[in-house]
Amino acid sequence: MDNTYAYGPVVTRDRSHTLFAQTMAYVAGTAGLFALGAYLGRNLTGGPAIIAYIASFAALIGMQFSARRSRELTIGLLAAFGLFIGLAVAPTLAFYASQDPQALWQSGGATALFIAGFGAAGYATRRDLSKLARYAFWALVALIAFSIVLIFVNIPNGALIYAILGLVIFAVLTMVDFQRLRRNTDIQSAPLLAASIFLDILNVFLFFLTIFSGRSDNR
Protein backbone atom coordinates (compact mmCIF):
# COMPACT_ATOMS: atom_id res chain seq x y z
CA MET A 1 0.00 0.00 0.00
CA ASP A 2 1.33 3.42 -0.98
CA ASN A 3 1.40 5.74 2.03
CA THR A 4 2.76 8.73 0.11
CA TYR A 5 -0.54 10.61 0.25
CA ALA A 6 -0.94 9.81 3.94
CA TYR A 7 2.49 11.17 4.80
CA GLY A 8 2.30 14.16 2.45
CA PRO A 9 0.15 16.45 4.61
CA VAL A 10 2.18 15.55 7.71
CA VAL A 11 5.48 16.39 6.01
CA THR A 12 4.04 19.64 4.64
CA ARG A 13 2.73 20.60 8.07
CA ASP A 14 6.09 19.84 9.70
CA ARG A 15 7.93 21.94 7.11
CA SER A 16 5.44 24.76 7.66
CA HIS A 17 6.01 24.64 11.41
CA THR A 18 9.78 24.59 10.89
CA LEU A 19 9.54 27.59 8.58
CA PHE A 20 7.42 29.45 11.14
CA ALA A 21 9.91 28.75 13.92
CA GLN A 22 12.93 29.79 11.83
CA THR A 23 11.24 32.91 10.50
CA MET A 24 10.22 34.12 13.93
CA ALA A 25 13.71 33.37 15.25
CA TYR A 26 15.13 35.56 12.47
CA VAL A 27 12.57 38.27 13.32
CA ALA A 28 13.70 38.17 16.95
CA GLY A 29 17.36 38.31 15.93
CA THR A 30 16.71 41.23 13.59
CA ALA A 31 14.85 43.04 16.38
CA GLY A 32 17.82 42.48 18.69
CA LEU A 33 20.24 43.94 16.14
CA PHE A 34 17.83 46.81 15.56
CA ALA A 35 17.89 47.56 19.29
CA LEU A 36 21.71 47.40 19.25
CA GLY A 37 21.85 49.80 16.30
CA ALA A 38 19.38 52.15 18.00
CA TYR A 39 21.59 52.20 21.10
CA LEU A 40 24.85 52.68 19.20
CA GLY A 41 23.35 55.41 17.03
CA ARG A 42 21.55 57.35 19.76
CA ASN A 43 23.89 60.33 19.25
CA LEU A 44 23.91 60.25 15.44
CA THR A 45 22.97 63.34 13.46
CA GLY A 46 20.83 63.46 10.33
CA GLY A 47 23.58 62.79 7.76
CA PRO A 48 24.92 59.50 9.16
CA ALA A 49 21.38 58.34 9.89
CA ILE A 50 20.45 58.85 6.22
CA ILE A 51 23.53 56.91 5.15
CA ALA A 52 22.52 54.09 7.51
CA TYR A 53 19.02 54.11 6.01
CA ILE A 54 20.45 53.81 2.48
CA ALA A 55 22.70 50.96 3.66
CA SER A 56 19.70 49.14 5.17
CA PHE A 57 17.78 49.53 1.90
CA ALA A 58 20.80 48.18 -0.01
CA ALA A 59 20.91 45.17 2.31
CA LEU A 60 17.24 44.45 1.57
CA ILE A 61 17.87 44.60 -2.17
CA GLY A 62 20.90 42.36 -1.76
CA MET A 63 18.75 39.78 0.03
CA GLN A 64 16.51 39.50 -3.03
CA PHE A 65 19.49 38.50 -5.18
CA SER A 66 21.23 36.26 -2.64
CA ALA A 67 18.15 34.33 -1.48
CA ARG A 68 18.57 31.55 -4.06
CA ARG A 69 22.36 31.60 -4.15
CA SER A 70 23.62 31.65 -0.58
CA ARG A 71 21.57 31.16 2.57
CA GLU A 72 24.48 32.31 4.74
CA LEU A 73 24.88 35.54 2.77
CA THR A 74 21.13 36.21 2.94
CA ILE A 75 21.15 35.77 6.72
CA GLY A 76 24.18 38.06 6.95
CA LEU A 77 22.40 40.72 4.90
CA LEU A 78 19.33 40.37 7.14
CA ALA A 79 21.56 40.98 10.16
CA ALA A 80 23.12 44.01 8.45
CA PHE A 81 19.66 45.31 7.63
CA GLY A 82 18.57 45.06 11.26
CA LEU A 83 21.68 46.89 12.49
CA PHE A 84 21.59 49.63 9.85
CA ILE A 85 17.87 50.33 10.17
CA GLY A 86 18.40 50.60 13.93
CA LEU A 87 21.12 53.19 13.33
CA ALA A 88 18.83 55.03 10.90
CA VAL A 89 15.89 55.24 13.32
CA ALA A 90 18.11 55.90 16.37
CA PRO A 91 17.87 59.73 16.29
CA THR A 92 14.06 59.53 16.20
CA LEU A 93 13.91 57.09 19.08
CA ALA A 94 16.44 59.12 21.07
CA PHE A 95 14.32 62.24 20.59
CA TYR A 96 11.17 60.56 21.90
CA ALA A 97 13.09 58.92 24.72
CA SER A 98 14.14 62.35 25.95
CA GLN A 99 10.92 64.26 25.18
CA ASP A 100 8.09 61.75 25.51
CA PRO A 101 9.24 58.32 26.78
CA GLN A 102 5.66 57.30 27.58
CA ALA A 103 4.82 57.40 23.87
CA LEU A 104 7.57 54.83 23.23
CA TRP A 105 6.14 52.38 25.76
CA GLN A 106 2.58 52.91 24.57
CA SER A 107 3.63 52.41 20.96
CA GLY A 108 5.54 49.24 21.81
CA GLY A 109 2.56 47.72 23.62
CA ALA A 110 0.09 48.72 20.91
CA THR A 111 2.40 47.29 18.23
CA ALA A 112 2.64 43.94 20.03
CA LEU A 113 -1.15 43.68 20.24
CA PHE A 114 -1.60 44.83 16.63
CA ILE A 115 0.87 42.34 15.15
CA ALA A 116 -0.38 39.49 17.34
CA GLY A 117 -4.01 40.15 16.36
CA PHE A 118 -3.64 40.71 12.63
CA GLY A 119 -0.83 38.17 12.35
CA ALA A 120 -3.03 35.49 13.93
CA ALA A 121 -5.93 36.49 11.67
CA GLY A 122 -3.77 36.19 8.57
CA TYR A 123 -2.24 32.91 9.69
CA ALA A 124 -5.63 31.35 10.42
CA THR A 125 -7.69 32.58 7.46
CA ARG A 126 -8.19 30.23 4.52
CA ARG A 127 -9.26 32.93 2.10
CA ASP A 128 -6.49 33.86 -0.34
CA LEU A 129 -5.24 37.32 0.61
CA SER A 130 -2.67 37.66 -2.19
CA LYS A 131 -4.99 39.89 -4.24
CA LEU A 132 -5.25 42.28 -1.31
CA ALA A 133 -1.47 42.56 -1.26
CA ARG A 134 -1.51 44.33 -4.64
CA TYR A 135 -4.09 46.85 -3.46
CA ALA A 136 -2.13 47.39 -0.25
CA PHE A 137 1.07 47.99 -2.21
CA TRP A 138 -0.48 50.74 -4.33
CA ALA A 139 -2.15 52.18 -1.25
CA LEU A 140 1.30 52.32 0.35
CA VAL A 141 2.68 54.16 -2.68
CA ALA A 142 -0.18 56.66 -2.37
CA LEU A 143 0.54 57.04 1.34
CA ILE A 144 4.17 57.85 0.60
CA ALA A 145 2.99 60.49 -1.87
CA PHE A 146 0.67 61.87 0.81
CA SER A 147 3.58 62.09 3.26
CA ILE A 148 5.52 64.16 0.71
CA VAL A 149 2.53 66.48 0.33
CA LEU A 150 2.45 66.94 4.10
CA ILE A 151 5.99 68.31 3.98
CA PHE A 152 4.87 71.24 1.82
CA VAL A 153 1.18 71.61 2.69
CA ASN A 154 -0.24 72.15 6.17
CA ILE A 155 -3.25 69.80 6.40
CA PRO A 156 -5.18 69.84 9.71
CA ASN A 157 -4.47 66.59 11.57
CA GLY A 158 -2.43 65.48 8.57
CA ALA A 159 0.02 63.45 10.66
CA LEU A 160 -2.82 61.64 12.44
CA ILE A 161 -4.56 60.86 9.15
CA TYR A 162 -1.26 59.59 7.73
CA ALA A 163 -0.69 57.31 10.72
CA ILE A 164 -4.22 55.86 10.73
CA LEU A 165 -4.12 55.16 6.99
CA GLY A 166 -0.72 53.56 7.46
CA LEU A 167 -2.08 51.25 10.15
CA VAL A 168 -4.94 50.19 7.88
CA ILE A 169 -2.51 49.37 5.08
CA PHE A 170 -0.12 47.47 7.32
CA ALA A 171 -2.97 45.54 8.90
CA VAL A 172 -3.53 44.06 5.44
CA LEU A 173 0.19 43.56 4.77
CA THR A 174 0.67 41.87 8.14
CA MET A 175 -2.15 39.43 7.43
CA VAL A 176 -0.73 38.72 3.97
CA ASP A 177 2.78 38.08 5.32
CA PHE A 178 1.55 35.71 8.02
CA GLN A 179 -0.62 33.85 5.53
CA ARG A 180 2.46 33.46 3.31
CA LEU A 181 4.25 32.10 6.35
CA ARG A 182 1.58 29.43 6.82
CA ARG A 183 1.23 28.45 3.16
CA ASN A 184 4.93 28.42 2.30
CA THR A 185 7.06 25.32 2.89
CA ASP A 186 10.34 26.61 1.42
CA ILE A 187 12.77 26.86 4.33
CA GLN A 188 15.09 28.99 2.19
CA SER A 189 12.50 31.78 2.22
CA ALA A 190 12.69 32.26 6.00
CA PRO A 191 15.11 35.26 5.95
CA LEU A 192 13.03 37.11 3.34
CA LEU A 193 9.80 36.46 5.24
CA ALA A 194 11.49 37.61 8.44
CA ALA A 195 12.58 40.87 6.79
CA SER A 196 9.05 41.49 5.54
CA ILE A 197 7.46 40.79 8.93
CA PHE A 198 10.03 42.93 10.72
CA LEU A 199 9.25 45.82 8.36
CA ASP A 200 5.57 45.39 9.22
CA ILE A 201 6.43 45.60 12.92
CA LEU A 202 8.70 48.61 12.54
CA ASN A 203 6.26 50.62 10.43
CA VAL A 204 3.34 49.84 12.74
CA PHE A 205 5.47 50.97 15.69
CA LEU A 206 6.35 54.26 13.99
CA PHE A 207 2.71 54.91 13.07
CA PHE A 208 1.63 54.33 16.67
CA LEU A 209 4.47 56.58 17.82
CA THR A 210 3.04 59.37 15.65
CA ILE A 211 -0.41 58.84 17.17
CA PHE A 212 0.66 58.64 20.83
CA SER A 213 3.13 61.50 20.60
CA GLY A 214 0.40 63.59 18.98
CA ARG A 215 -1.85 62.92 21.92
CA SER A 216 0.84 64.17 24.26
CA ASP A 217 1.25 67.35 22.23
CA ASN A 218 -2.49 68.06 22.47
CA ARG A 219 -2.66 67.78 26.25
Rank of each mutant, 00 (worst) to 15 (best):
L36T: 14
L36F: 12
A38F: 06
Y39G: 04
L40Y: 09
R42D: 05
N43S: 15
L44N: 10
T45N: 02
G46K: 00
G47W: 11
G47I: 15
P48S: 03
A49D: 05
A49W: 04
I50G: 12
I51K: 03
A52S: 13
A52T: 09
S56W: 03
F57K: 01
A59L: 02
A59H: 03
L60R: 09
I61T: 10
I61E: 05
G62I: 04
Q64R: 09
Q64A: 14
Q64F: 08
R69S: 13
R69K: 15
S70N: 13
E72A: 15
E72N: 05
T74N: 09
L77P: 01
L77A: 09
L78Q: 03
L78I: 06
A79V: 00
A80P: 08
A80R: 02
F81N: 07
F81H: 05
L83K: 04
L83G: 06
L83V: 05
F84T: 11
I85T: 14
I85N: 11
L87N: 03
A88I: 04
A88C: 08
V89D: 11
A90V: 07
A90L: 01
T92M: 13
T92V: 15
L93K: 06
Y96P: 04
A97R: 09
A97K: 07
Q99T: 14
Q99P: 00
D100I: 10
D100V: 10
P101A: 09
Q102L: 15
A103P: 00
Q106P: 00
G108S: 13
G109D: 07
T111F: 04
T111L: 12
T111S: 10
A112N: 00
L113N: 07
L113S: 10
F114H: 02
A116V: 13
G117D: 02
F118P: 01
F118E: 00
G119T: 08
A120K: 08
A120W: 11
Y123V: 11
A124E: 13
A124W: 09
R127E: 15
L129Y: 05
S130P: 01
K131Q: 14
K131R: 14
L132R: 06
A133K: 14
